[in-house]
Design a binder for these strands. Structure first.
Lengths: 215, 215
DNA sequence: CGATTATCAATTATCGATAATCTTAACGAT
DNA sequence: ATCGTTAAGATTATCGATAATTGATAATCG
């Protein structure tokens, strides 16, 4: 959507998409010079992209050895969901204070696209728009550190959902609808209600997956 | 204590200490080539260190412009304390499950050093040991992403405390004692009690500062 | 045979130089 | 005076090459 300006950003985004979708599988070994040649850039550029992926929590760089795609245990996932939901409930409190009607419309439009993707069973698109939805709320709170802290949590969750949801045969359209209560609270400019709603919304997805998982 | 292996790590640590202590003040402009010459390394090395500082939330890199030391508003601080306390209450639950007696002793020793530093009024040493205390608890929970998420929050808090506490003329020794209840819960291997204790412990410091601040 | 040391291959870490880009100031036309 | 354009300066972004480190394996010694 927004065009990446720098080479590093482009490569970072591409590798990130590849890892999240599973095209580059967990535990895969990534060699800087090898990637550099394959992608037609220098080692330093790849190196920088890999460092960003490390911050994203998607790879683990072992000093003077190599870089490996991370593998996350399922029971760690609960924490990611929970901490993420808390951070979002914080940020949404602030965002609600200052949100404009135009911004509200932007969020509404995203929910529509999420619903649309859900209808078509396109999980990657759905999660993409879902991320945008939550990210905007975090961004508008204007708290850079919380945003930076939120990103890796969300990316883990995103990867987890994309790679496990298809196995569950659960209706994606349900997932889209759970955004509505959040939106209603935002519209009402009710900070506490919004905080509660988004917390519930995030954990609902976990419960859906966990419910299927443990059966 | 632990010796940094790579050049980047050394420079990262030094700059971080300089920023946290205030030797490099907020809003200061950092130029890659300038630092490179001053510290006798190449631009790329400095660049990498600055990127890590950005992840730490201590500087903001403006693409193709320069890097600036961040300035954090006081009302953002409350969120840092709050989110941090939540993350720590999560991690301590896990850590308590697997903690060994040797690890407990290690924590006890750190509390002693914190108390010692408090007695001597050495706030930098105090906060240093305090960080180690909390960091070990986070590390032992064995959740890399949560640790990475915790670090920038703690660094902000650390910088804030070091740069404002001296103005308050509050007794540092009190601060040390608030670690004891946490330790008791850990010793009892009571996960829930430990979670509650550490949450209270973290927010207590905030309340102390906030109380002085708003008078 | 076991333990220690030397060598090798793989890979990252660092460097120095050059290219690309952004900001500001200067300039000229309207 | 104001607007748009351009030139200069400052700074990051990228590259290609070399150095340093690690782990594995082979060689050596007692």
């Amino acid at each position: 959507m927004a065009k990446p300006r720098s080479l590093v950003e482009q490569i970072h985004e591409q590798l990130r998409a590849d890892i999240i979708s599973g095209r580059i599988p967990a535990s895969e070994k990534l060699v800087e010079l090898e990637l550099a040649e394959r992608m037609g850039t220098s080692q330093g550029t790849i190196r920088e992209a890999l460092q960003r992926l490390e911050w994203d929590g998607l790879v683990e760089r072992q000093a003077r050895r190599a870089t490996y795609v991370t593998r996350v245990a399922i029971d760690e996932m609960y924490e990611y969901f929970a901490v993420r939901s808390l951070i979002e409930s914080f940020t949404i409190r602030r965002t609600v204070q200052t949100i404009t009607d135009a911004q509200c419309q932007q969020l509404e439009a995203l929910i529509d696209r999420i619903a649309e993707a859900g209808q078509q069973g396109d999980i990657e698109a759905l999660v993409q728009h879902d991320m945008r939805f939550h990210q905007l709320i975090c961004e508008w709170a204007n708290s850079p550190v919380l945003l930076r802290v939120w990103v890796p949590l969300f990316l883990q969750v995103q990867r987890f959902i994309i790679q496990t949801y298809p196995k569950l045969f659960s209706p994606l359209s349900e997932m889209a609808e759970t955004h509505r209560p959040v939106m209603r609270a935002i519209h009402a400019r009710d900070a506490e209600a919004a905080a509660a709603a988004i917390q519930e919304h995030v954990m609902l997805v976990w419960q859906q997956i966990d419910h299927h998982q443990t059966r």
